[in-house]
């Protein structure tokens, strides 16, 4: 049931992106272009989305558990660390270059246009790249760690 609910939520979310115009990168770039013919629509989209999400989250906070699952997975981190800042800068550059972020990219995938396919493939490669980059220092540490007792033993 939770999987069906998740599909329907994705459907509603995707419909919202389509109706709002945010699947059109020119509309997003129109908002990001402060020095051009500025299009404020994205601010209205954010206002509508945040208001409804906040109301729904307030209802969720009042419940012991979600309707179809055992627990709420609220984000628990509060720190503003270097990866948050650096990652957001990189994301902002990519978003500003093309005018597409992950949600609209996936909705647009249905049209199978070449630039969107290129964007989604590159985005997934970027995500895989981050996973590899993130795991590298951990792997090096894991190899180094057992070497200390063996050195002591030797």
């Amino acid at each position: 049931m939770a999987v069906v609910a998740s599909f329907i939520c994705g459907l509603i979310f995707g419909a919202g992106l389509l109706i709002s115009g945010m699947t059109d990168p020119q509309k997003v770039l129109g908002f990001l272009d402060l020095f051009g013919a500025w299009d404020a629509t994205l601010a209205f989209v954010m206002a509508g989305a945040v208001a409804v999400a906040a109301a729904g989250f307030a209802v969720a906070r009042g419940r012991a558990a979600p309707v179809l699952a055992t627990k709420f997975s609220w984000p628990d981190r509060r720190d503003i660390d270097t990866p948050l800042v650096a990652g957001s800068v990189l994301f902002g550059i990519g978003w500003g270059l093309v005018g597409i972020c992950p949600g609209p990219a996936l909705v647009n995938l249905a049209g199978l246009s070449l630039p969107i396919i290129v964007f989604v493939v590159a985005m997934i490669l970027g995500m895989i790249g981050y996973e590899l980059w993130r795991r590298r220092p951990v792997a090096a540490h894991a190899i180094e760690a057992p070497a200390i007792p063996s050195r002591a033993d030797g």
């Binding site: 939770a2 609910a5 998740s6 329907i8 939520c9 994705g10 459907l11 509603i12 979310f13 995707g14 419909a15 919202g16 992106l17 389509l18 109706i19 709002s20 115009g21 945010m22 509309k27 129109g30 013919a37 500025w38 299009d39 404020a40 629509t41 994205l42 601010a43 209205f44 989209v45 954010m46 206002a47 509508g48 989305a49 945040v50 208001a51 409804v52 999400a53 906040a54 109301a55 729904g56 989250f57 209802v59 969720a60 419940r63 558990a65 979600p66 309707v67 179809l68 699952a69 055992t70 627990k71 709420f72 997975s73």
Partner: peptide, 29 residues
Amino acid sequence: MHNLTPLSGLLGGALIGLGAAALMLLTGR
């Protein structure tokens, strides 16, 4: 502001918020 579409923006935004709220309320995600 030639291309401003505030009503469809608000309505679409509300649906985005509804999708996010429903995902949390139903599945906790």
